[in-house]
């Protein structure tokens, strides 16, 4: 999924983007949101959500929920 598309979908729900930067490896983007969620977006379009608000953001992006214990 495109990084701008992810930002648009999450922020439309009232969850502010608080940080956007290239990943340390330079192969994607790291996004932080006001609810504590972090989204790592690879340049190939894959996305991984973590942090306190991960559940809400995962739902907004229609991503599969993380397995239990993940």
């Amino acid at each position: 999924m495109d990084v701008d598309r992810i930002v648009a979908l999450v922020t439309a729900d009232g969850i502010e983007l608080t940080d956007r930067r290239r990943s340390a490896k330079g192969d994607g983007w790291s996004l932080s949101f006001s609810n504590g969620a972090t989204v790592e977006v690879s340049d190939d379009g894959s996305a991984r959500v973590s942090g306190k608000g991960a559940k809400a953001v995962t739902r907004l992006l229609d991503l599969p929920a993380a397995p239990r214990g993940a």
Binding site: E16, T18, S34, G36, K52
Partner: peptide, 14 residues
């Protein structure tokens, strides 16, 4: 001037 997280819990940052 735009949203930062509090330095203390409850905070968006662990």
């Amino acid at each position: 001037v735009n949203t930062m997280q509090p330095p203390y819990q409850p905070s968006g940052n662990d």
